[in-house]
Design a protein around this nucleic acid. Structure first.
Length: 466
RNA sequence: GUCCCCAUCGUCUAGCCCGGUCCAGGACAUCGGCCUUUCACGCCGACGACACCGGUUCAAAUCCGGUUGGGGACGCCA
């Protein structure tokens, strides 16, 4: 069987967004699952809007998501000679002709047609003029005026188009640069693409592209049009829906595996399974299980998935991942071992790396701030005795860890005839500044005896000062 | 306007192709409970959907037609 080759062809007019990332993911998964190749191609024929920065941003995002490509990145602007050669072939075989209608003129005609409720298609006025190449002329494809073109789509099924609905599309602009519909076909042919997996906003382009394949006598690839991703208002995801760029999710503290897992489940499913490892996805992904209807992207499940992956990570890995987020805060330097210990206690209770970086504040700073309300409520005079007793017990403790700490608190509580819960909250406030935190004993083990005692004394000072 | 696509809980979806096992299953979110030194995690439970109308059939979420709703395309953008 012939080797599968898929491609992801972003146009570098902005960052890699959620929708594009999912398309890339599907192509990547499809190729990987079948032992095929995955090609990255930059569609930069829109010279006006394409930028270097966008190229870099897209590559960075692909890298962050770890969607590696086997070929490319190819740039369409580097392949102009190839397109011209095929355009020539089309011209020579009578499948294309030069057109002298100006862009302005066409704009007017289009406006009129729309206003009159007609389909705004090119009227074919230069079709039989037999024009040659010249300044300000574009090359148009001669679309058959009758008949139908059938698209057998892997996800949508068979779709038939009336050729009469199509018009003579421009394939070479007046500056000699190919248009999208032409360049894609030539690239997909010459790069040996076997499966074109893309957003279903392209289904209407497909019959035009199929016609070009035919005119060139080229073999058709398989097509799979996946539904688009929408925002909560059911319109296609765009800037006004908030974060749409992949890298924004990185900045918000999401893990790539969580984003990927979230994206793959938008439109695709494998029974009731929600969590997939990369290998599982490669093993289980099929185009047949891609749905036909558009889906809405929300952060709810992403947050849950991210929390899940954070819980699963080794604390040591999280130390690395957290570094850039910690650097954004005024934290003093701490050893990796200390960091790993702190992180381990935070893992079950944070959804994002940003949350975690914030939550670890009390581990990091030398002087913690008491939340006023918490201090007033828990750092009360009756805690004097408790704290005093704790400080001396703790100082005398041989080993200072979770298991040795617990009995100290239990016996102290018993001796002083109070419930453990009664002394836990005040200690928590003294240690962390607030009323919510990881388990008391795990915190203490991470913080270490010295810091714990120092903070208990600070608590005592606060009590004395009131 | 013309053409194309889509339609199951608030959201992501299973089931639909090959009608009965579905008074529709899972997950997220929400609410309640358990666990518990707080907050979480975890566990248990609740809420909650086949867009509508008609047809075919002994039987329809599943097949057919229409309606409505949503989306896409109609560029010398991609």
């Amino acid at each position: 069987m012939e080797q599968v080759i898929t491609r992801f062809p972003p146009s570098p007019t902005g960052a890699l967004h959620i929708g594009g990332a999912r398309t890339a993911l599907f192509n990547w998964l499809f190729a990987r699952s079948l032992g095929g190749r995955f090609v990255l191609r930059i569609e930069d024929t829109d010279v006006e809007r394409s930028t270097e920065e966008s190229v870099k941003a897209i590559l960075d995002a692909m890298e962050w998501l770890d969607l590696g490509w086997d070929e490319g990145p190819y740039f369409q602007t580097h392949r102009l000679a190839v397109y011209r050669q095929y355009a020539r072939q089309l011209l020579d075989s009578g499948h294309a002709y030069w057109c002298e209608c100006s862009a302005e003129e066409l704009e007017v005609r289009r406006g009129q047609a729309l206003a009159e409720g007609r389909k705004p298609k090119y009227d074919g006025s230069c079709r039989s003029k037999g024009l040659g190449e010249g300044a300000n002329r574009v090359l148009r494809f001669r679309t058959p005026e009758t008949g139908t073109t059938l698209l057998r789509d892997i996800v949508k099924g068979a779709i038939e188009f009336d050729n009469a609905e199509l018009d003579d599309l421009v394939i070479l602009k007046s500056d000699g640069i190919p248009t999208y519909n032409f360049a894609v076909v030539i690239d997909d042919i010459t790069m040996g693409i076997t499966h074109v997996i893309r957003g279903d906003d392209h289904v209407n382009n497909t019959p035009r592209q199929i016609l070009i394949y035919r005119a060139l006598g080229a073999k058709l690839p398989e097509f799979g049009h996946v539904p688009m991703i929408h925002g909560e208002d059911r319109s296609p995801l765009s800037k006004r829906h908030g974060a749409t760029s992949v890298m924004e999710y990185k900045r918000m503290g999401f893990l790539p595996e969580a984003l990927l897992n979230c994206l793959v489940r938008l439109g695709w499913s494998h029974g009731d399974q929600e969590i997939f490892t990369r290998d599982e996805l490669i093993e289980k992904f099929t185009l047949e299980n891609v749905g036909k209807s558009p889906s809405i992207f929300t952060m709810e499940k992403l947050l849950w998935l991210n929390a899940h992956y954070i819980k699963e990570k080794r604390p040591e890995e999280l130390v690395e991942l957290l570094r850039p987020f910690a650097a954004l805060r005024d934290y003093p330097h701490k050893s990796d071992g200390f960091l790993a210990g702190a992180i381990r206690t935070l893992q079950p209770r944070t959804h994002t790396l940003v949350e975690m970086a914030d939550a670890m504040r009390f581990y990091m700073v030398d002087e913690i701030q008491f939340e006023p309300e918490a201090a007033v409520k828990f750092l009360t005079a009756d805690m004097r005795e408790v704290f005093g007793r704790l400080i001396s017990e703790l100082s005398a403790l041989e080993t200072f860890d979770e298991t040795s700490l617990e009995p100290v608190f239990r016996t102290t509580a018993e001796d002083l005839k109070v419930k453990l819960g009664k002394i836990a909250q005040p200690v928590r406030v003294a240690l962390t500044g607030g009323t919510k935190s990881p388990g008391l004993f795990e915190i203490m083990e991470v913080l270490g005896r010295e810091t714990v005692i120092a903070r208990l004394k600070k608590g005592l000072e606060y009590i004395a000062g009131n």
